[in-house]
Design a protein around this nucleic acid. Structure first.
Length: 449
DNA sequence: AATCCGTGGAA
DNA sequence: TTTCCAAGGAT
């Protein structure tokens, strides 16, 4: 080990022990508590995590408690934190611990690494922080700090670079102090050796920092830029209940896999207008931005502030109606624009245009066709609504439900039994149980204010 | 290897 | 306003 490397390890360890923050997961070295904190901290800032962590540990204090909980409650506890597969994987991991390891997180690198949602970084963090094992825990902070200190110019966006830095980090761990040293590395990255304006003047290892000596502290680490998120326009339906569902709105649960898996949301579809454009033209980033801006109109931040041009509204309502009928077997009749919201994911940015809609259809006994409640085919329904209703082929349950409602249906009630199985009517109180991504939380809170 | 997974804070 | 990116993992 070089002089500079020994200096680094010694000074960093001393600095950490004198300057470490008092954080809730540093209360003790319970490996379960460390594990939960490390998963929450993945791609997420400390300040954001703290309240979630406290609530989570309060509710699921042990791996056994987490393992036994309904997944719905776990997701609800994670609501707003993002990367929701972390929550589902963490619970799966807790179930492995409960079933295969007697409820105790094993002091074993291979077994920890095999847990669901635990990758190379989290394995190293748990092994070093909870068990003081000399394993490297290389995250973004560590790659930045070491890139600067040793003036490494490899692209830290490449997986191979992380592997190399892991070897270096392992070689730096002082005997018997893996946990404190690894945390010190991250603490330095978070508090001093920050991405944009590193605080070299207060840095405990500045004297031997090669990056600074080379005048490259602002250039390092080298990192290739991520692709910008692709824009998507989503058309959403704010379906307002009547009759038995007065005061409620219609929400649906997302599929088991993929984006926002098993979260709840307003029913929505990809604007077919947009997908055509994307396919045919393959627009550049500028054109995308322009198109997005055009539809955003002059929003003032409030959900209900802007109004797209009337012609656009008509087309979008038509598309929303037809697509929900085709893709979801859900018959709604959009009645007007309600609001909009933007939602930025890592790789997608949604422009959500929300339309009020009526729900409900009744069997017209004269024509034996389904029609929208209170409107009816050919009696004032919008063309799209009329066509989708007329084309709808009722199943037995629909007929039975329509029949059951009888006169109530004619007066604007609807066939509840015909709802697709992943749909529910909810009131504000139901928001306490169901987990929604932030964009829909914002919209629903706005609606229920 | 590249892409898919959220969200919010800071500059 | 835009850009970056934070204690990453799974596929």
């Amino acid at each position: 080990m070089t002089e500079a490397a020994q200096y680094f390890s010694r000074e960093l360890l001393a600095w950490y022990r004198a300057n470490k923050r008092d954080l809730p997961w540093r209360m003790n070295r319970d490996p379960y508590r460390i594990w939960v904190s490390e998963v929450m901290l993945q791609q997420t800032r400390v300040d954001t995590v703290i309240p979630y962590y406290n609530r989570f540990m309060d509710k699921f204090p042990t791996a056994a408690a987490l393992a036994a909980a309904p997944e719905e409650e776990v997701l609800k506890c994670w609501e707003g934190l993002g990367y929701y597969s972390r929550a589902r994987n963490l619970q799966a991991g807790a179930q492995e611990v409960a079933e295969r390891h007697g409820g105790v997180v094993p002091d074993n690198k291979e077994l920890v690494s095999a847990l669901r949602g635990v990758g190379p970084y989290t394995t190293g963090a748990i092994m070093s922080i909870a068990f003081n094992r000399p394993e490297p825990a290389v995250d973004g902070n560590v790659m930045r700090v070491l890139s600067r200190y040793f003036c490494l110019e490899e692209d830290i966006a490449k997986p191979a670079t992380r592997v190399g830095i892991e070897k270096l980090a392992a070689s730096l761990i002082p005997d018997g102090a893996a946990g404190d040293f690894n945390q010190g590395l991250m603490e330095l990255g978070a508090l001093v050796c920050t991405p944009k304006s590193p605080g070299c003047l207060t840095c405990p290892v500045m004297a031997h920092c090669e990056g600074r000596a080379a005048g490259k502290e602002h250039v390092l680490p080298i990192k290739t830029k991520a692709k910008p998120p692709r824009p998507e326009r989503r058309l959403a339906a704010l379906v307002i209940g009547t009759g038995a569902h007065e005061g409620k709105i219609l929400v649906r649960q997302r599929p088991d896999t993929g984006l926002l898996a098993r979260m709840w949301e307003l029913p929505h579809v990809l604007d077919p207008q947009q997908s055509d454009t994307v396919k045919k033209k393959g627009r550049g980033a500028k054109a995308k931005a322009a198109e997005q801006a055009e539809l955003m109109a002059e929003s003032a931040g409030s959900v209900a502030a802007a109004l797209p041009p009337a012609a656009v509204r008509e087309m979008q309502m038509d598309a929303l109606c037809r697509t929900l009928a085709a893709e979801e077997k859900l018959l709604v009749r959009p009645t007007g624009w309600w609001g909009e919201a933007e939602h930025v994911f890592s790789h997608i940015v949604w422009d959500v245009q929300v339309y009020r809609a009526d729900y409900g259809f009744v069997l017209d006994e004269e024509t034996d066709e389904f029609a929208y409640a209170g409107v009816g085919v050919g009696r004032g329904a919008s063309q799209a609504a009329a066509e989708t209703a007329a084309a709808y082929e009722p199943n037995g349950a629909d007929r039975e439900a329509a029949g059951l409602f009888g006169d109530a249906a004619v007066s604007g009630d609807h066939a509840a039994e015909a709802l697709p199985s992943n749909y529910r009517w909810i009131g504000p109180e139901d928001m306490r149980e169901l987990a929604f991504p932030n964009v829909f939380l914002r919209l629903l809170r706005e609606y229920w204010i």
